[in-house]
């Protein structure tokens, strides 16, 4: 195998050989397994690289989705499903906000201290439901809870199992001073496997607090296990009660 052979392979594969040269080359291929093998590898390398180097927007989109789901595997405990990184980040932010509110001497009402929440707009997925969720997030964050309920109803009509929508509908009812309506949603969240599972329990507890039912409130706070992210928050509130 020499440089000339390499150039012959290149010319053969790019279809630039005149008929005579081609016939001669092909008869060499039959007799020289090494030449044939190099030709096959050559073709394979070209084809494979062609596929892997060409841009694939669909694959890039998929990779984004996969990346956002990474916490499902990396986060403990494995049994609780997470939505995406930003959500986890916001959740810790919310926990910090709750703590600051807890320490605030100017706040008197316990519900007020723990009730403050922000709804995070969903990751861009450009489906109809997500547009609605983004709208609901705006309404929720501007304290238009009744409107948020209406919007989230629409999402849940399309996707009855959307835990995210159900959780925030529960919170919207709660903020809209309708604790009894909030509970079915929040209890469903607690009974499910979503990232909001134990937040669901926490807000069911708050819904009872809102009705001054401290016993029930305590009962629900105690459902939050030691490895849940909001365990400390729940324990704090328990002490306060």
């Amino acid at each position: 195998m020499n440089e000339q052979d390499h150039e012959l392979i290149e010319r053969y594969l790019s279809g630039e050989m005149d008929a005579d040269t081609k016939t001669a080359f092909e008869s060499r291929l039959e007799k020289e397994p090494e030449l044939l093998q190099t030709l096959q590898t050559w073709r394979d390398v070209q084809e494979t690289l062609r596929h892997s180097l060409q841009p694939d927007a669909q694959r890039d989109e998929l990779k984004k989705t996969l990346h956002s789901l990474r916490p499902v595997i990396t986060k403990q405990p494995a049994k609780v499903v997470r939505f995406n990184r930003s959500l986890v980040a916001i959740a810790s932010l919310a926990a910090a906000v709750a703590l600051i509110l807890y320490l605030s001497p100017w706040e008197k009402d316990l519900y007020q201290q723990y009730g403050a929440q922000e709804m995070i707009s969903p990751a861009e997925r450009s489906t109809g439901a997500d547009t609605l969720l983004a709208e609901a997030a705006r309404q929720f964050n501007h304290h238009h809870y009744a409107q948020a309920v209406v919007t989230l109803d629409k999402v849940l009509a399309q996707q009855p199992d959307n835990a995210y929508a159900k959780y925030y509908r529960g919170l919207s009812y709660l903020e809209n001073k309708q604790p009894a309506l909030a509970r079915p949603d929040l209890e469903a969240i607690y009974n499910g496997e979503s990232v909001f599972k134990y937040e669901g329990a926490f807000y069911v507890a708050l819904s009872y607090l809102k009705e001054k039912n401290e016993e029930k409130c305590r009962e629900w706070l105690e459902k939050i296990p030691g490895d849940a992210e909001n365990y400390a928050k729940a324990q704090e509130l328990l002490k306060k009660l």
Binding site: E3, H6, E7, I9, E10, R11, S14, E16, W42, V45, Q46
Partner: peptide, 10 residues
């Protein structure tokens, strides 16, 4: 180009 390409591929 053809010569250089075949060198590079090899």
């Amino acid at each position: 180009l053809r010569k250089k390409k075949s060198e590079c591929m090899a």
